[in-house]
Write a protein that binds this DNA or RNA. Sequence first.
RNA 1: GUGAUCGUAGUUCAAUCGGUAGAGCACCUGACUGUGACUCAGGAAGUUGCGGGUUCAAGUCCCGUCGGUCACCCCA
Length: 423
Amino acid sequence: MKEFRAIRGTRDILPEETWRWHIVEDSAREVFGRYGFREIRTPIFEASEVFVKGTGDTTDIVQKEMYSFEDLGGNQVTLRPEGTPPVIRAHVEHRLGQGKSIDRYYYCGPMFRYERPQKGRYRQFHQIGVEVLGVEAPEVDAEVIGMAMAWLQALGVADLTLRLNTVGDEETWAAYRTALVAAQADRLDELCADCQRRHVTNPLRVLDCKKPGCQAVIADMPSIHDSLSAEAGAHFHRVQSSLESAGVPVVVDPRMVRGLDYYRLTVFEVASGALGAQDSVLGGGRYDGLVGRMGGDDVPGVGFASGVERILLAMPESESAPITDVFVVAFDEESSGKVHDIVQGMRAAGVRALTQAYDGRSKRSQGKAAHRSGAPWQIVVGPDEIAADRYTLKRVDDGYEKTVEGGELAAIAARLTRPSNSD
RNA sequence: GUGAUCGUAGUUCAAUCGGUAGAGCACCUGACUGUGACUCAGGAAGUUGCGGGUUCAAGUCCCGUCGGUCACCCCA
């Protein structure tokens, strides 16, 4: 019979690794909670239009990476490729931003993009992201960036670099585009085929090309910082000074351009040196105008998204917690009935207890399982114990033993395994 | 979508020039220990990713396909 497999670009997150996911998620809840963010959960699929309008119909994501299909009712729907448009859709749909309200959301869950898988890139991947809606002040950009860094550092993500740039506002963009197109036009023949295409579709993206030939040309291109409008320049400087006073180290990268069309003013990215070519663990920016384009009041917004798989790749190895606190071994098959009573009694008392005394498994097999479980306590139950109704809890670490009456076994086990009192 | 590379037991790998598919670890049973670890004996585990082709004979050579990995592209 043919074996089933998880389809390309998707993976099973197995029990031996889910605990690391919990660390990342719990940490996000704790850190983001300190900043007043509350969780929002949106459906994992939406009307395709949400992304066409939200993410932008010129982006690679919308043009060639979406999992879109027609459902049985004839609706065009898409598995979400990113989190921001659905959050804004929900915010607008439920009229959550009234008057001058400031709304802080975080989300957490799977995203889908049809790309060729490689290290740190999957077709179903997981993001944890935040959005702040309703604040124009550059200090909130710095606040969100600072929070991201604090979180990643708390997780121990290795070798972090925060890169910051501004893509300006509408006025900046018009001026810069003109300057850039003019400068590129002179040396178009020196650019690669992709960049010649970008020259027409999105001249800003040429700056991101890593090909040596293009790099030489890019080095001579005007910087966006020369075209910055007064407002955009002031915003960028206030973000920088705010980050500086918060003690967050920043690398300003005048060439950094993000791939999503909706970004305005601040853009940023956090990379880890522990990763491969896909080294970005988190990215985001400001998207003033997007909420208005999606049918809401024209409130400003800023946020980021992080890739959980990439964070996990860049986090230090650590030992998993034991799967149980007390492992109970049946000395012989006749004792296994009592073993099950004991295990169930301890569970009822709130103790994590486990046995493998099933199907006549040998002591050897049970003992190995006990060892593998990492249980700090073990009990061996045989005819002697059952006859005397006295059982011995043995601490694996140092061999300490405590023998108790059957009637109080569960209660004593509960006390011994509580982290606060050791005896 | 493009390129490189790799697919043999649960896993890590071996198999000469094309000539009977093997080992360590893990797993299971038994012996020895009132558990485990150590030692000894045994066991289970494979249509060599899949489909064609060449050959007396293919894990090995050829073609195709699927999948993994890495990179381009793009992004988290």
